[in-house]
Nucleic acid binder design. Structure first.
Length: 323
DNA sequence: TCGTGTCAAGATCTT
DNA sequence: AAGATCTTGACACGA
């Protein structure tokens, strides 16, 4: 069993390296001319793309192969103010360079449209905007030349709207209507309030969608289901996929503020999870969601290296190499 | 330059 | 029915 670790969007260990620069709508609209507005958008976008490539190079140096792109690569991407802007053409080379680097170095990259993107809303306008946002994410992959559907978009089921069953049905109806190039990218994650791992597993099995189980969310919402019972079936949803199963892992900030993410990953909790995963015996990847981003990853990987049984099962896929 | 209130977006809880 | 809260990194503005 090999497992790898990844992190989300930004590194704490490179100076001035945000991939998520943006501009507020108010300020953007106050800029004096079309030229000024385009200049601002291009400047931010260039910086975001450059920083993304810097982060990937850094990841490569540390052999961190699992990474989630920020959703904010293009400022105001799906806002009506910039609908006319063809950012893909403007930054053709930059996108391509990122995608080439991903492919050359066998990264597993992903993206996670944020919680405003809901395909089970009863509101047609919300659905429309959500599809626009999904389309934006896929466009980014395509611009990078990451045409392979193995590069995924993680989503949640959506809102409850006081009727869980009907809301799940609406998810299914809208999901199957999505264009193929979007639909085949989507994978589903259990959330920390509404849809449990068991709920999501049911949807995933029915619609043949790979499932990402978020261990922390499972601890927030469940009806007594045991992780060890769920995990084999969750991993099975990946059987026809190129990449191995992926999970999300984070530690609660505190007992009182349980749902929030802590700065780091609590080692003991991760070790407990590994013991459950070992029983399943499959390779998998872990996306860590901690405030300390890659610093939390490096800390955890240090701690894991101290544990003999872990070293025996893992082939040091996340080993630090000097670079 | 620094600290802090604010920010595109939806859902849901509180009043 | 309207307003607050969720959650988050980064902006934007004023001191």
């Amino acid at each position: 069993m090999i497992f790898r670790l990844g992190y989300v969007a930004m590194t704490l260990n490179l100076e001035k390296c945000s991939p998520s620069g943006t501009v507020t709508v108010t300020v953007f609209n106050k800029l004096p001319s079309e030229e000024a507005r385009m200049y601002r958008l291009r400047k931010i976008t260039r910086s975001n793309l450059e920083n993304t490539l810097r982060i990937l190079r850094y990841n490569q140096a540390l052999n961190i192969k699992v990474y989630r792109f920020t959703s904010k690569l293009i400022p105001l991407a799906t806002h009506p103010s910039i609908e006319h802007w063809d950012y893909v053409s403007d930054f053709k080379d930059e996108f391509r360079e990122i995608g080439d680097f991903v492919k050359e170095n066998n990264f597993r990259v992903s993206a996670h449209p944020d919680h405003y993107t809901l395909i089970n809303s009863p509101d047609a306008k919300v659905i429309e905007d959500s599809i626009k946002d999904l389309d934006y994410h896929v466009k980014i992959y395509e611009a990078m030349g990451l045409e392979d559907y193995k590069y995924k978009l993680v989503m949640h089921v959506g809102g409850l709207y006081k009727q869980k069953k009907a809301s799940i049905e609406r998810f299914k109806e809208n999901f199957v209507k999505l264009p193929e190039r979007i639909r085949n990218r989507i994978i589903l994650e259990n959330d920390d309030k509404s849809y449990s791992a068991l709920d999501v597993l049911g949807i995933c099995k029915e619609l043949n969608i790979p499932m990402v189980i978020d261990i922390h969310h499972h601890n927030c919402v469940n009806n007594g289901e045991k992780l060890e019972d769920l995990l084999p079936e969750v991993f099975d949803t990946w059987n026809n996929q190129e990449f191995v199963p992926k999970i999300h892992f984070s530690s609660p900030k505190s007992e009182k503020d349980f749902r929030s993410h802590a700065d780091s990953i609590e080692f003991g909790e991760f070790e407990e999870f590994l013991k459950v995963a070992r029983k399943v015996g499959r390779d998998f990847d872990t996306m860590l969601e901690a405030k300390n981003k890659d610093s939390a990853l490096l800390k955890l990987s240090e701690e894991l290296r101290e544990v003999e049984w872990v070293n025996e099962i893992n082939q040091a896929e996340f080993e630090i190499t000097e670079g």
